[in-house]
Design a protein around this nucleic acid. Sequence first.
DNA 1: AAGGTGGACAACCGCCTAAAG
DNA 2: TCTTTAGGCGGTTGTCCACCT
Length: 254
Amino acid sequence: MEKKPCNNGDGLNKGAWTALEDKLLVSYITAAGEGKWRSVPKQAGIKRCGKSCRLRWLNYLRPNIKRGNISEEEEDLIIRLHKLLGNRWALIAGRLPGRTDNEIKNYWNTTLSKKVRTQNFAINKPNNKPWGHNSKPQQNATSSTSIPTLIQTKPLRCTKASHPYFPLQIPSSIDGVDQTQQIIQQNFGDEIMEEEKKESAMVNNNDLLFFYDAMWTDELEFENWSKGGDDYDGILCNDDWFYGSSDTDIWQNF
DNA sequence: AAGGTGGACAACCGCCTAAAG
DNA sequence: TCTTTAGGCGGTTGTCCACCT
C-alpha cells in the first residue's frame, strides 16, 4: 500500500506541474507506455512520486482528453448517471468519453450539485394518495411457462433529467433456476452496465416481482419514453404500487 | 489600486481492493 | 492462507484568477 504522502522528505516536488515535468512525463510514457508508476519518476527523471505522475497523466496529459465546457447533453447525462450511481465518479466518467472522473467530480461539486438542489424535484403524488398506496398502472399478464419476456409498464420517472425506472413483472425463477440474468440479457443486452446489474437486483420476493432500473443509451428512445412517461418513480409489488421521489424513498415506502 | 471573496479546477491524501509473492 | 505491493477511487485541500467593493 502506498500510504506515505508523496512528499515524504525525499525532496520530491509538490504542487502545480511545470511544463518541463509534463514534457518529461509525456515523452517517457509515449516511449514506455503506461503502468509501473512507482518506477516512472526515476525512469523519466521527474522529482515526483509515482502516484502523482499517474494522476497527472490520467487527468491532464493523456491523449483524447476532452477539455473545455461541458455541454448540455453531457450535463444532463451526468445528472442522470449521478442519480443512478451516486458519487461513483469513475463509473460516471466511463460513460462520458474524454472526460475524467476528477473533472466530473469537480464539476458536480462546484456547479451541478447546486443546480440540482435548486431544481424542484418535488413530485406530486398520484391522486393525492399517500405513499405506498395502491395506484396501479395498466399492465400485461406474465407468461408462466417459457422463458419470460419483459412485461413492461410505462417507465416511471421523476423529471426529464431522471432516468426511467422499469417495474418488471417476471418470475424470479423457473424450475428453481434463477432467470434474472437471462431476462435482463434478453431485454437489455449489453447496454446494462455490470454495476447496474449488481445494484438493481434488489427485489425478488417470490411473487413474480422483480424491479429493475434501466438506463437507456439510446437518447432518442429515452426521449420517447420520457414524453409518454409518468411523473413518478415506483415499484409494483403484490398489485400495490409504491412511489417515492428517489430510490431511497421508494424502498422506505415499500 | 488594493484587498476580499468565491468559483473552478488541479493536486494531494488516505483508504480500499486485486494481484502477486 | 497471509503479507506485500501497485493501482484505483473518492473526499478534501490548495491555488489561481476573475470579479466585486
